[in-house]
Design a binder for these strands. Sequence first.
DNA 1: CGTCTATTTGAATGTACTCAAAAGCGGTGG
DNA 2: CCACCGCTTTTGAGTACATTCAAATAGACG
Lengths: 199, 199
Amino acid sequence: MKGSDKIIAYVNQFVHLNQEEELEFLSKLSFSTFKKGQFILRKGEINKYQNFILKGCLKTSHIDENGKERVLTFSIENWWSGDLYSFLSEKPTQYFIQALEDTEVLRITKPNLEMVYSKIPQINIMFRILLERAYIAQQERIIGNISESAEEKYLKLIKKYPAFEQRIPLKQLALYLGITPQFLSMVRNKIAHTPNFFK
Amino acid sequence: MKGSDKIIAYVNQFVHLNQEEELEFLSKLSFSTFKKGQFILRKGEINKYQNFILKGCLKTSHIDENGKERVLTFSIENWWSGDLYSFLSEKPTQYFIQALEDTEVLRITKPNLEMVYSKIPQINIMFRILLERAYIAQQERIIGNISESAEEKYLKLIKKYPAFEQRIPLKQLALYLGITPQFLSMVRNKIAHTPNFFK
DNA sequence: CGTCTATTTGAATGTACTCAAAAGCGGTGG
DNA sequence: CCACCGCTTTTGAGTACATTCAAATAGACG
């Protein structure tokens, strides 16, 4: 499936576009590829794009004064990636975005997105829905982070996003959960050796 | 200061309204009061209002299957309170909102807000700015929750919102931080007896 | 004043971390 | 194609952080 078909199929999950609108939207997107390990965005830069992932996996993370890294999100096929705050406000980002796999994206700049908004109100609606969902997902994660043990958080994560278990290295998952890789390794082992841990 | 003056002063921090717009906006708000302990919203209900707090303090919390409560936010004077997701989608909320003090609010319904949006574009801009800020604050909290010890989280909280230390009961702060009240009591004691913990 | 809830204190336990080292795996160059 | 290097994952011992359970004390409210 071509990239343009993929994103149109994605958009159609939320709103309906006629052919003219589809072409208008596609004309504002550009295609980019990133090698595994490559940085798409670094702290201090202004995030000029929202990236729709056609193939691959991106990690958005934060690194504090002591060099401690924490993962805010992993983004895979059919997700958007990009620091929304920096994108909207045109201020420097606090985050790094890095490819965990060879990755292909369709990306849009702020001026182009604004042009699309004015010509295709449906796209506005789609992004409003996406923002609502992102907001509520964040709230759920906050509740989870302050309620659950590492084991519960891990089980919930791989239940919500089954692809992550196979696809994302243990170390990176630990950075997302806020635990040490050593401890996550123990947790996995315990789960694997506990009969009927699925219930 | 009257409630109407307070919210106008608040709005003026973000955007400028002329006198006609001010009156239009105010005409869409209604005044309500809540007694300490009273619930403004319960899980399963649809959140019909966004509440601007003139006086008092509201707590938004989540209670899981086991009855375990966790606090998502505390809201005091000059903050908005209300489950945005339920408000926008008109679906049942997952949260409880309860008054921690006798509280006075100015509130707006979704139809009235939409009317205001269409007549006063500035209000649209204001809420967009507020949503951006809420989103970024949530991201920072997620990073903090997975990076920091209980002591760090507590110190950061009272540094960011100094009023909370005096005003919000220890037990409620513990429900926000995701630790037991007993442990927070120990943390406070340790801080109080550690010379130069401010640095 | 009495009752109810919030806060403090302490002991025992469990969860997760640090440090250290070994084993596994993937990519690169010869 | 294999050997090596660097990074990830596993394993283990000792420690620190945070919880549970229990009980005493302090505060708030009618």
